[in-house]
């Protein structure tokens, strides 16, 4: 199908982009920021979105790139998924981001789609919001008013909704370095290899002397916005994981038991690909798998 008409501007600086987006009058139509367009263009083509103006941020080099900033990694919003995967800084200091990014769509989409675009689009089935949430990332915005720093926990406000105000642009994301002792995994469950996640689990787990000292679990597609599996995180603390293979004969596995709380406080959707009870079940099983993988 074919997009409805819209106007197009390509600002040459972030300031200009903020000015244009800030000056937009909502009464005159929807002004939308365009990053890689890999989610937006299909919506335009299906005529599920009718923006009056697209503000193409694609040439704003200042929003591109990955920087090591001491206690955190800064990922420019326009850094493509492909660039994220190639970044040695990410590999070293934010491996969970790399693990999840590698599962996003397919290579061609990853060449165009951006890290910031995925977060700002806030699709509940998108893989990266749960990761940002699990890592307590901070989303850095710019606007005519100067910009803000929004913790991930306050950024994803609902289905395709974020805390971004009109005229506010996501500039980048601060991903805290977690330090030593952490293991990571992103467990994605989907029906075909290129399909969106039915459920995804982002897990970061820290062992201390053989016992789980800390766990962070973010869930994809278990509600209108990504959620932390806080009950699991609490339940895992202090648990000593059994050796691999133990518990297969029916013996109690405390890690598994803790992960059985994964769907606590979630509101999974019912759609073509799964009903809520199945998603709840998947969240429990996949969280256990993600934690086990993160531990190994």
């Amino acid at each position: 199908m074919i997009p409805a008409p819209f106007d197009y501007v390509r600002p040459s600086s972030l300031d200009e982009a903020c000015r244009i987006l800030g000056a937009a009058d909502p009464a005159e139509g929807d002004v939308k920021a365009l990053a890689g367009g890999q989610s937006l263009l299909p919506l335009l083509r299906l005529r599920l979105a009718y923006p009056s103006v697209l503000v193409d941020l694609g040439r704003l080099e200042e929003l591109r790139g990955v920087q090591d900033r001491g206690d955190h990694v800064f990922i420019g919003a326009l850094t493509t998924h492909d660039e994220v995967l190639r970044s040695p800084v990410i590999r070293e200091h934010a491996p969970l981001v790399a693990l999840a990014t590698a599962t996003v769509a397919d290579p061609a989409v990853r060449h165009r789609g951006t890290f910031g675009g995925s977060l700002a689009h806030a699709d509940p089935a998108g893989d990266l919001p749960a990761v940002a949430l699990a890592l307590d990332s901070v989303l850095v915005t710019a606007s005519g008013a100067g910009g803000r720093e929004i913790p991930a926990a306050g950024f994803f406000t609902g289905y395709l909704e974020t805390a971004l105000e009109p005229g506010e642009v996501l500039a980048g994301v601060k991903v805290p370095k977690l330090g030593d002792g952490w293991g990571f995994h992103y467990e994605k469950f989907h029906r075909t290899a290129q399909a969106w996640a039915v459920v995804g689990v982002a897990a970061a787990v820290r062992l201390e002397a053989g016992t789980i000292a800390q766990a962070r679990i973010g869930l994809t597609n278990m509600g209108p916005a990504p959620v932390r599996a806080r009950t699991v995180e609490t339940a895992l603390r202090g648990v000593t994981p059994p050796a691999a293979g133990a518990g297969a004969d029916g013996g109690r596995d405390p890690v598994r038991d803790a992960c059985a709380w994964a769907d606590e406080g979630t509101a999974p959707p019912a759609d073509l690909h799964a009903k809520p009870d199945y998603r709840r079940h998947l969240a429990r099983v996949l969280t256990h798998r993600a934690v086990r993988a993160a531990l190994s």
Binding site: Y8, R10, L34, G37, Q38, L41, P42, R45, D56, G58, A108, V109, H111, R112
Partner: peptide, 10 residues
Amino acid sequence: AKSCSVLAVQ
């Protein structure tokens, strides 16, 4: 790149 998901202006 998937040329159906890129605008010519991009």
